[in-house]
Design a protein around this nucleic acid. Structure first.
Lengths: 114, 114
DNA sequence: TCGATCGTTCGATGTTTGCCGAACAAAGGT
DNA sequence: ACCTTTGTTCGGCAAACATCGAACGATCGA
């Protein structure tokens, strides 16, 4: 669709993002590592995430992040691109994401994400 | 180490506090509500927490918070007092707890904690 | 048109989690 | 001594979660 694919059913509106769901999504080391990787703002496709899990598991993790409102996914042909909803999260929960991202490096390293 | 029972086996040292465990502990609305209640720094005993769950369930929640390093428990006679490890968390993960506490009120209200 | 690529969906499995009531243990008060 | 209060521990149960391989569907390139 076009003008507003933001309103894709899969992505909650900014105001509907739940803090507990965000925390739950980030409490998994793999997902936290992915978010950390995405924190430079660049858009990536699944393969670039280097997660040490199978395709199907990664797909579930990406769905968890997406439905928690943490990432936004865009389909293009046969592949999906994902990026952090940094601004949305910052406006909904000021300071939370940024402080988390500063604290995260020590933990995510253990997961094998590059 | 010393006269300090801080190092009680039940309480992780500040440097051992894990971010993912903290996030996991806070991803439950009841526990988040309790932390919010404790955020004024006052020490309380279980009963003052007003959590809408049974004693045994509350005991588990308190254990989760304690072993994640979020709270500190002190036994006195037949009762336990608990307080937030605000300074420890702030030094380990600067900004995380404070931004979370600002974001939390909207969510925890739904849980029935006063 | 035929593969190859990429991601989703579908069982299946084992683990963890939230919750409860009941039984237990330690103090304290009467 | 006894009962009350306060918190812990112990099964048990249902729901949620992380994980996998296999099957599927869509798209792009040869």
């Amino acid at each position: 669709m076009s003008p507003a694919d933001h309103l894709d059913a899969r992505h909650p509106a900014t105001d509907d993002i739940s803090l507990t769901r965000v925390l739950s999504a980030l409490s998994d080391p793999i997902r936290l590592g992915i978010v950390l990787l995405l924190s430079d703002g660049r858009e990536r496709q699944w393969g670039e995430l280097d997660a040490p899990v199978s395709k199907s598991t990664l797909s579930h993790h990406m769905k968890t992040l997406r439905s928690a409102g943490i990432t936004r996914t865009r389909d293009e042909g046969t592949r999906c691109y994902v990026h952090l909803r940094g601004d949305d999260l910052e406006s909904r929960f000021p300071g939370v994401l940024s402080s988390l991202l500063e604290a995260a490096p020590g933990e995510a390293a253990a997961v094998g994400l590059k």
